[in-house]
Design a protein around this nucleic acid. Structure first.
Lengths: 170, 170
DNA sequence: GCAATATAGTTTCAATTGAAACTAATGTGA
DNA sequence: TCACATTAGTTTCAATTGAAACTATATTGC
C-alpha cells in the first residue's frame, strides 16, 4: 500500500528506465529511445550531406577520417568509422568514381591500398565541416555547457558498457 | 598564446562536441556517437529477441505496444513505435503467421483493422519483458541513479530538438 | 447523391545492407 | 620451401528497407 502512494511518474519521463512494476513501456525503454533519437538525428544530417553534396553517411564518414589521418587502408578506415569492410569498400568505390578519393597500392604489402582524399575531396570536405558542426551546434543548443559535459560522459559510459555486453554474447 | 595553453582535452572526451578550431573529429561528432551507440545497443537486444524468440526488433515493438494498448490499428501502432506503416504492415504479417497477433476488421470503418495479441502473444510477451528489462538494467548499471535521471532528461531534450530541426527541412 | 479527396493498409520496385564466399597476397611452421 | 593459415579487399546472394503505386473504404463539398 505504501508503495502505491509514492510520487507519480510523468509518462515519458522515467529515470529508472522502462520498468514499472514489471511492466514495460516502449517509450521509456532505453534501447528504443536511443534508436529513435539516433535515427531522427541521422535523418537530419543525412539530408544535409545528400542535398548539398550528393553524399551518403558512409561516404561522409570515410571522408572525415581520411581528412584527419591520410593514407589509411580500407580496414583502418573501417576501424575508425565503426563500419564493416563491405560498407567501406562500397563507399570507397563511389568516392573513387566521384573523384573524391585516390587509391594507391601499398608498396610493401600489395593487398593493402592507401586511400587519400583528392584535392577535390579536400575542397568538398572543407565545405561540409562547418555545416556538420553547425547541425551539431543546433542540436546541442538546447543543452547548457554543464549538460553537454554530462552528455559526453554518459554516452561514453554507455558505449563502453554496450560493448562489454556485446562481447559477452558471440 | 593564452588560448593554446588552456587545459588539454583527452581524445574522445569533449564536451563541446566535435569542433576543435574548426576541425572535425568523427569520434566526437554527436550524430556519429549516437548512431554507433544506438547500433551497438540494438545489436545486443536484437540478438536476444532473435535467439530466444525468433523475433525482429520491429516485431517486438509491435508486440510491446499491443500489450499495453490493446486493439490498435496499424497506423496507431506505427505512431507509437516510430515506424512507418510499411514496416508495421510487414511486422504484423509475420506476427499473424506466427499466431502471435490476431486481426479483426473494425465494424464501423472497414479499412481499419483491430490488432491484438493472441493468448500465445501475451504469453511470449510475458517471457520477453523481464529479459528486455534486464538488458536495460545491465546497460544502466554503469550509471548512478542521478546519472540515470540526467540521461533521461538529456535524451528527451535532444529528441525534442532533433524533431524541431527535422520539421524545418522537408 | 455523387464526384473529388483523403485515409488504411498492402504490394511493387529499386536501393541498401550483411553474411558468406571468393580472389589475391602475405605470413608461418615443419 | 612448400603446404596451411591469415589478412585485405571485392563480389555474390538473400533479406531488409523506403518510396511510390495501388486497392479498398470513408469523408467532404457541392
Amino acid at each position: 500500500m505504501a508503495k502505491a502512494s509514492r510520487k507519480r511518474k510523468e509518462p515519458g519521463s522515467n529515470a529508472d528506465g522502462a520498468a514499472e512494476f514489471g511492466r514495460l513501456s516502449l517509450e521509456q525503454f532505453l534501447p528504443y529511445r536511443l534508436s529513435v533519437l539516433a535515427n531522427t538525428v541521422s535523418r537530419d544530417v543525412a539530408r544535409m550531406y545528400d542535398e548539398r553534396f550528393g553524399l551518403s553517411v558512409p561516404e561522409w564518414r570515410v571522408m572525415a577520417v581520411l581528412a584527419r589521418y591520410e593514407a589509411l587502408s580500407a580496414v583502418e578506415v573501417a576501424g575508425r568509422t565503426a563500419m564493416d569492410k563491405v560498407r567501406v569498400s562500397r563507399a570507397v568505390a563511389r568516392l573513387l568514381r566521384a573523384g573524391v578519393v585516390q587509391r594507391a597500392t601499398d608498396r610493401t604489402d600489395r593487398r593493402r591500398s592507401e586511400l587519400r582524399l583528392s584535392a577535390r575531396g579536400i575542397a568538398i570536405h572543407a565545405q561540409i565541416v562547418p555545416l556538420a558542426l553547425s547541425v551539431e551546434r543546433e542540436l546541442l543548443s538546447v543543452l547548457s555547457a554543464e549538460e553537454c559535459r554530462s552528455l559526453d560522459l554518459l554516452l561514453a559510459k554507455l558505449q563502453a558498457r554496450a560493448e562489454e555486453i556485446e562481447g559477452m554474447g558471440p
